[in-house]
Amino acid sequence: MDLTTVTIEWYIALSAILFTIGALGVLLRRDAIIIFMSVELMLNSANLLLVAFAHHLGDATGQVLVFFVMTVAAAEVAVGLALIVAIFQSKKSIDISEVNLLKG
Protein backbone atom coordinates (compact mmCIF):
# COMPACT_ATOMS: atom_id res chain seq x y z
CA MET A 1 0.00 0.00 0.00
CA ASP A 2 1.38 3.21 -1.11
CA LEU A 3 1.24 5.85 1.58
CA THR A 4 2.90 8.51 -0.50
CA THR A 5 -0.06 9.45 -2.61
CA VAL A 6 -3.53 10.12 -1.40
CA THR A 7 -5.79 7.72 -3.30
CA ILE A 8 -9.56 7.54 -3.32
CA GLU A 9 -9.35 4.87 -0.61
CA TRP A 10 -8.14 7.43 1.85
CA TYR A 11 -11.21 9.53 1.32
CA ILE A 12 -13.43 6.48 1.51
CA ALA A 13 -11.94 5.62 4.86
CA LEU A 14 -12.29 9.17 6.14
CA SER A 15 -15.83 9.37 4.91
CA ALA A 16 -16.68 6.03 6.51
CA ILE A 17 -15.23 7.16 9.81
CA LEU A 18 -17.12 10.41 9.78
CA PHE A 19 -20.31 8.68 8.76
CA THR A 20 -19.91 6.20 11.57
CA ILE A 21 -19.28 8.93 14.08
CA GLY A 22 -22.44 10.60 12.89
CA ALA A 23 -24.34 7.34 13.14
CA LEU A 24 -23.08 6.75 16.63
CA GLY A 25 -24.15 10.23 17.50
CA VAL A 26 -27.66 9.50 16.32
CA LEU A 27 -27.70 6.26 18.25
CA LEU A 28 -26.07 7.32 21.45
CA ARG A 29 -27.13 10.90 22.11
CA ARG A 30 -30.52 11.76 23.52
CA ASP A 31 -30.37 15.42 22.78
CA ALA A 32 -32.41 16.13 19.71
CA ILE A 33 -30.20 18.96 18.56
CA ILE A 34 -27.06 16.87 18.82
CA ILE A 35 -28.80 14.11 16.88
CA PHE A 36 -29.55 16.59 14.17
CA MET A 37 -25.98 17.72 14.10
CA SER A 38 -24.90 14.10 13.76
CA VAL A 39 -27.23 13.73 10.82
CA GLU A 40 -25.55 16.79 9.29
CA LEU A 41 -22.21 15.17 9.88
CA MET A 42 -23.32 12.03 8.08
CA LEU A 43 -24.56 14.08 5.17
CA ASN A 44 -21.26 15.89 5.01
CA SER A 45 -19.37 12.63 4.96
CA ALA A 46 -21.44 11.62 2.00
CA ASN A 47 -20.82 14.95 0.35
CA LEU A 48 -17.12 14.58 0.88
CA LEU A 49 -17.19 11.21 -0.78
CA LEU A 50 -19.17 12.59 -3.70
CA VAL A 51 -16.67 15.34 -4.26
CA ALA A 52 -13.79 12.92 -3.87
CA PHE A 53 -15.26 10.62 -6.48
CA ALA A 54 -15.99 13.51 -8.74
CA HIS A 55 -12.36 14.40 -8.59
CA HIS A 56 -11.27 10.78 -8.90
CA LEU A 57 -13.40 10.24 -11.97
CA GLY A 58 -12.81 13.69 -13.46
CA ASP A 59 -16.54 14.34 -13.68
CA ALA A 60 -18.23 17.44 -12.25
CA THR A 61 -21.60 15.77 -11.97
CA GLY A 62 -20.77 14.52 -8.51
CA GLN A 63 -20.35 18.05 -7.35
CA VAL A 64 -23.80 18.95 -8.70
CA LEU A 65 -25.24 16.15 -6.59
CA VAL A 66 -23.76 17.81 -3.54
CA PHE A 67 -25.94 20.81 -4.19
CA PHE A 68 -29.00 18.62 -3.97
CA VAL A 69 -27.79 17.04 -0.76
CA MET A 70 -27.19 20.45 0.71
CA THR A 71 -30.66 21.61 -0.31
CA VAL A 72 -32.28 18.56 1.27
CA ALA A 73 -30.13 19.06 4.37
CA ALA A 74 -31.16 22.66 4.65
CA ALA A 75 -34.83 21.78 4.33
CA GLU A 76 -34.45 18.98 6.81
CA VAL A 77 -32.75 21.21 9.33
CA ALA A 78 -35.40 23.86 8.95
CA VAL A 79 -38.26 21.38 9.47
CA GLY A 80 -36.35 19.44 12.13
CA LEU A 81 -35.54 22.47 14.15
CA ALA A 82 -39.12 23.63 13.92
CA LEU A 83 -40.15 20.19 15.24
CA ILE A 84 -37.69 20.52 18.07
CA VAL A 85 -39.07 23.89 18.94
CA ALA A 86 -42.58 22.51 18.88
CA ILE A 87 -41.63 19.53 21.05
CA PHE A 88 -39.84 21.81 23.43
CA GLN A 89 -42.89 24.01 23.71
CA SER A 90 -45.03 21.11 24.84
CA LYS A 91 -42.49 19.03 26.76
CA LYS A 92 -40.09 21.70 27.97
CA SER A 93 -37.36 19.28 26.98
CA ILE A 94 -35.64 18.11 23.88
CA ASP A 95 -34.70 14.72 25.27
CA ILE A 96 -35.92 12.29 22.68
CA SER A 97 -36.25 9.53 25.25
CA GLU A 98 -39.19 11.48 26.58
CA VAL A 99 -40.82 11.70 23.21
CA ASN A 100 -42.70 8.41 22.94
CA LEU A 101 -46.24 9.29 21.99
CA LEU A 102 -46.11 6.64 19.29
CA LYS A 103 -45.54 3.90 21.84
CA GLY A 104 -47.58 0.93 20.78
Binding site: I35, S97, L101, K103, G104
Partner: peptide
Amino acid sequence: QLRRIQTGNVGNYALSLF
Protein backbone atom coordinates in the same frame (compact mmCIF):
# COMPACT_ATOMS: atom_id res chain seq x y z
CA GLN B 1 -44.58 -8.83 21.62
CA LEU B 2 -44.67 -6.90 18.40
CA ARG B 3 -45.91 -3.70 19.97
CA ARG B 4 -42.89 -3.66 22.17
CA ILE B 5 -40.98 -2.83 19.07
CA GLN B 6 -43.08 0.26 18.78
CA THR B 7 -41.53 1.93 21.81
CA GLY B 8 -42.23 5.37 20.52
CA ASN B 9 -38.63 6.08 21.36
CA VAL B 10 -36.93 7.74 18.41
CA GLY B 11 -33.67 6.15 19.35
CA ASN B 12 -35.02 2.72 18.89
CA TYR B 13 -36.32 3.56 15.45
CA ALA B 14 -32.97 4.99 14.58
CA LEU B 15 -31.34 1.90 15.95
CA SER B 16 -33.40 -0.42 13.82
CA LEU B 17 -32.73 1.78 10.83
CA PHE B 18 -29.04 1.51 11.37
